[in-house]
């Protein structure tokens, strides 16, 4: 995992609530057996028309917006546990997702792929979306060390589990950590039966 420290970028607003992982990556694209290339099909059925041509009104097809930060409506990532959703967002180039609420499994999947979900208040989310929609070149800065999100409409602190923060900053993953605890795990197993 690449270490995560500071991201400064423009942002892409997608103010739809309850974006489920079936929208992020539809099931028919889950047949691959590696993690690469899912970005091409990110938001596939919103991004393309029935005839396969790009849907100009969808934000990812707009020339106005770009960046490594996605700002999405409430309850982002609900539904299926498919990590393919996190792979698709990361593969497309997103490093940060901002929303007023994240579904549990998605949040964990994002963090396990070096992507930072930032939860902000509903009110702040609304303000930042309005601002970015009106000023597409506005830049946001995410500092994981200080746990701050700087935006033109104000700077806010965000929460992250201290252990997860450490993993993200150093690019560690849970596997190494769990293996380092194998003596404890073995001892636990021994008293099971």
């Amino acid at each position: 995992m690449t270490p995560f420290k500071i991201v400064t970028s423009r942002a892409i607003p997608l103010p739809v609530e309850n974006i489920d992982t079936d929208q992020i990556i539809p099931a028919r694209f889950l047949k691959a057996t590696d993690k690469k290339g899912f970005g091409d099909n990110l938001f596939r059925d919103w991004r393309y028309e029935k005839n396969g041509s790009p849907n100009d009104s969808f934000v990812l097809n707009s020339t106005k917006y770009r960046g490594q930060i996605l700002i999405a409506g409430d309850n982002f990532g609900c539904g299926s546990s498919r990590e393919h959703a996190a792979w698709a967002l990361a593969d497309y180039g997103f490093k940060v997702i901002i929303s007023s609420f994240f579904a549990d499994i998605f949040k964990g999947n994002a963090l396990n792929n070096g992507m930072l979900p930032i939860q902000v208040s509903a009110d702040f989310l609304k303000r930042i979306i309005t601002h970015v929609e009106e000023n597409p070149i506005a830049e946001l800065t995410v500092n994981l060390e200080t746990q701050t999100l700087e935006t033109p409409v104000g700077t806010v602190d965000f929460d992250i589990d201290p252990y997860k923060k450490l993993c993200l900053i150093n690019g560690y993953d849970d596997i190494e950590f769990l293996i380092s605890k194998s003596d404890k795990i073995k001892a636990f197993e021994a008293q099971l039966d």
Binding site: S81, A86, I105, G108, N109, N112, D174, L178, I179
Partner: peptide, 13 residues
């Protein structure tokens, strides 16, 4: 339910 990274964690430990 767990994501695939967690599937790998359970495999490993």
């Amino acid at each position: 339910g767990i994501g695939t990274s967690q599937v790998a964690q359970v495999f490993a430990s």
